[in-house]
Write a protein that binds this DNA or RNA. Structure first.
Length: 472
RNA sequence: GGUCCCAUCGUCUAGAGGUUAGGACUCAAGAUUUUCAUUCUUGCAACAGGGGUUCGAUUCCCCUUGGGAUCACCA
């Protein structure tokens, strides 16, 4: 049987890094096996629904190239793929489960349950409705009484199941609580919808956060009662912000779209998160999605939580930026230029200089700010021991350079470099004694992306001469 | 609190009884470079603690400690 996996997010507004990683692993398990990757929207909690959230999910998956084979927008043989459109299915199965003895009708209100809990302090909810006979329950329902369908757990002993990453897990049935499967509003809870859908959609591998480990036996019980085959479970460890805290939007942590907005490349983010809790067993770290499809192995998934290290993502993003085709980088850089650059400069030259130096695209604004506006700087900047320059030498070099540059016809990095070097040679100066002062005059900064000739070529002749005159 | 899970450099990790405990990020030093960055070289840095098992434990078992998860008409 070919693997079928599903990514089943709730449309609550944004794409979590952890969610995206789960989706990635699901996608890889399916693709590695030549199977299908299904997208299903879990919108059974109408209170949490956020307008436009589904689009974010679509866009994110598309942006990273994880195309789904079946889903709400493209359909498939097992639709609909939005849970709110499957209500009658859940209801049918829920009642069936009651008939099979796997669940029962419950007439307690939410308050009843809460009250009992408050009194008993951490003690499991004991449902008085369990004792109501099926006939009587049906009568009460017919009379229009509000009800929920609650899972019935009468088993004793331990539940045992296998997980691809955690191995065999044993949980006492006594620990399981009889949760609501079908809410009073007729919507199913995750605990039920998830099982029914995974079965009906022929999902073979369920990948989800390890917070679901403890409720997995409840789902297995439902599978068992229906006589269905449970899926292969792959519970993955959390992605953490630090040792104590999960990465979450609530703590103000970056979501996928936040990272992209900050200038991280989608493919770099995807590559990075693939390696959070997983490794190929080789020393390769840079992977395209295609490459991951070939080497991914869920058995190599790590059990312990992984802390999201923005530092390493930065480095990896830098690798991706450097590897970009120049044209693509230039296009991305242009977006940044438009944020702050009004001056007419040689943007292509600027991009050439920037590409090997930028780790995150948004840094461009800061790194290249001096192009737009020459910052205030002190004379002291012209003094540099290593370059063997001081204010006197700088002044002399700039005075020598000015007329030569005024005469220069071809304004390119190469011609400028030759010209400035020529000045040094002709006047018995070291290269740095000319180049360094020119660079300072042009930028007002101690460190800059690119040297004097490169910056001059970016600024253009007029602005270059203006800045040199100004410094003199 | 009950239950379940986890534990190698600061971080991501390799390791599956015998290794100088390897790699990557970060940091530091050096080389190259018209500053910076890139690139290259080198360095700093880890098996949480205690018991077993074994000729031998980072590796297997137990305990302790630390951390996480779960106990919703949320997913």
């Amino acid at each position: 049987m070919v693997a079928r996996t599903r990514f089943a997010p709730s449309p609550t507004g944004y794409m979590h890094i952890g969610n995206l990683r789960t989706a990635l692993y699901e996608y890889l398990i399916a693709k590695r096996d030549g199977g299908q990757f299904v997208l299903r929207i879990e919108d059974t909690d109408q209170k949490r629904y956020v307008e436009g959230a589904t689009e974010i999910i679509y866009n994110t998956l598309k942006e990273v190239g994880m195309n789904w084979d079946e889903g709400p927008d493209i359909g498939g043989d097992f639709g609909p793929y939005v849970q709110s459109k499957r209500l009658s299915i859940y209801q049918e199965y829920a009642h069936k489960l009651v008939e099979l003895g796997g669940a029962h009708y419950c007439f307690c209100s939410k308050d009843d349950a809460d009250e009992q809990k408050d009194e008993g302090n951490n003690i499991k909810f004991v449902d008085p409705c369990k004792n109501i006979s099926l006939d009587e329950a049906k009568k009460r329902i017919e009379k229009g009484e509000s009800f929920v369908i609650r899972q019935t757990i009468n088993k004793e002993g331990k539940s045992l199941f296998n997980d691809v990453v955690y191995g065999d897990i044993e949980i006492d049935y006594d620990e399981l609580d009889e949760g609501v499967l079908l809410k009073s509003d007729g919507f199913p809870t995750y605990n039920f919808a998830n099982v029914v859908d995974d079965h009906l959609m022929k999902i073979t591998h369920v990948v989800r956060g390890n917070e679901y480990i403890s409720s997995t036996p409840k789902y297995n019980l439902i599978y068992e009662t229906f006589g269905w085959e449970p899926p292969v479970y792959v519970h993955v460890a959390q992605v953490m912000k630090d040792a104590q805290h999960k990465l979450s939007k609530r703590n103000g942590d970056a979501s996928f779209q936040d990272l992209v907005a900050k200038g991280y490349l989608p493919e770099a983010v995807l590559n990075y998160i693939a390696l959070l809790g997983w490794n190929p067993g080789t020393e390769q770290e840079i992977f395209s999605l295609k490459e991951l499809e070939e080497v991914f192995d869920a058995n190599r998934l790590n059990k312990s939580p992984a802390i999201f290290d923005i530092q390493k993502l930065k480095w990896m993003n830098g690798c991706y930026i450097r590897a970009l085709e120049f044209d693509r980088f230039h296009k991305l850089a242009e977006i940044q230029y438009d944020k702050f650059l009004t001056r007419d400069v040689n943007r292509v030259e600027l991009s050439k200089v920037l590409q090997p130096r930028v780790e995150v695209l948004n840094d461009i604004v800061e790194i290249a700010q001096f192009i737009e506006e020459l910052p205030e700087y002190s004379q002291e900047l012209f003094v540099n021991k290593k370059m063997k320059t001081d204010v006197e030498i700088a002044k002399k070099s700039l005075e020598l350079a000015l007329p030569e540059l005024e005469k220069l016809e071809v304004w390119s990095n190469e011609s400028l470099f030759e010209c400035l070097k020529g000045i040094a040679v002709d006047n018995g100066l070291k290269n740095g004694q000319v180049l360094y002062p020119v660079r300072i005059a042009l930028t007002g900064l101690e460190t800059t992306p690119g040297g004097a000739s490169e910056i001059a070529s970016i600024l253009g002749k007029e602005e270059t001469l203006r800045r040199i005159r100004k410094s003199l």
